[in-house]
Amino acid sequence: MLSFVVAIANNNVIGKNEEMPWHLPNDLKRFKEITLSKSKTIIMGRKTFESLKKILPGRKHIVLTQNKNYKIENENVEVIYSIDDIMKYVDSNEEYFVIGGAQIFNSLFPYAKKIYLTEIYENFEGDAFFPQYDKSKWNIIEIKEGMIDEKNKYKHTFLTLERA
């Protein structure tokens, strides 16, 4: 089963220049909790992988790229070269976490069963956007207001959505 883990600004921005255009420690903490559960496997595109500061501990990284020469020598990283190679995760009973970027979210959206969503109630400049989707086709199974403090300056809400 594929689940998305994503933070989205009011204007649908998810990134700018291969980075998140905000700093929200509450969201990073939730991301870590989610991705260290279930399969402990995160699926991402090459640009998202390269934007990580390091290989995230305790998680298997699956990196999708069309560049057949792209290799990562690390036992926690598997490089795949076709979206077809992800289909085995779609039909699994185990939960696998898609973390971006925009191209990967677009390609895999029809297969996502769950979205762990952080809504950030601000507009940001960006060059990566989450796909538009019909919210009526998703059920909210959990909702929690994020705490605003000196480190978490933006109003935000954590939601878990399940495909209806």
Rank of each mutant, 00 (worst) to 15 (best):
N17E: 12
V98Y: 03
L36A: 10
K40T: 09
L28I: 10
N12P: 00
E95L: 01
A9Y: 07
K54L: 09
V98P: 09
K60E: 11
P25Q: 05
Y96R: 03
E73V: 01
A9T: 01
N17Y: 08
S37H: 05
K16I: 05
R59E: 10
V13L: 04
A9H: 09
E75D: 11
H23V: 12
V77N: 04
F105L: 01
T48P: 09
K32R: 14
T41A: 14
Q103G: 08
P110F: 09
V13C: 12
K113G: 01
T41W: 15
D84A: 13
Y96A: 03
V79T: 02
Y111R: 02
L56D: 05
S82P: 02
I42V: 15
K113D: 11
E95W: 01
E50N: 14
E78Q: 11
T65K: 08
R30N: 14
D84P: 00
Y70F: 15
N26Q: 11
I115A: 00
N11E: 07
D85T: 06
H61Y: 05
Q66A: 12
E94D: 12
I104C: 08
L24I: 13
L64N: 10
S92L: 09
F97Q: 00
E19V: 08
I99P: 00
N76C: 04
F49C: 08
K60V: 02
V63I: 05
P110L: 06
F49I: 02
I80R: 03
T65W: 08
I14H: 02
D85H: 01
Q66M: 11
I115F: 02
S37R: 10
K114Q: 10
G101W: 11
I115C: 06
N69W: 00
R59V: 09
N17K: 12
I104D: 06
I42P: 10
I115N: 01
E75N: 08
I14K: 07
N74K: 04
I8G: 02
P110S: 08
P57W: 04
E19T: 13
S51A: 13
K16Y: 14
L64P: 03
E18D: 15
K54C: 09
D91K: 15
D91C: 08
N10G: 03
I72H: 04
Y111Q: 06
H61F: 04
L28E: 12
W22N: 02
N69C: 04
V98W: 01
K60L: 13
K40H: 14
N76W: 01
Y96K: 10
I14W: 05
N69L: 13
V63N: 13
F49Q: 13
I86E: 02
V77H: 05
I86T: 01
S82G: 06
L36P: 02
I55F: 14
S92F: 00
Q66G: 09
G101V: 03
M87T: 13
K38E: 15
I42M: 15
K54Q: 11
F31G: 00
I115T: 07
N11C: 07
K68H: 11
G100A: 06
G15C: 03
P25C: 09
G101Y: 07
S39V: 07
I99H: 01
L36W: 01
L52D: 10
S51M: 12
G101I: 05
L108F: 00
L36I: 06
K71C: 03
I34W: 07
M87E: 12
N12W: 03
K54T: 14
E19Q: 13
T65M: 05
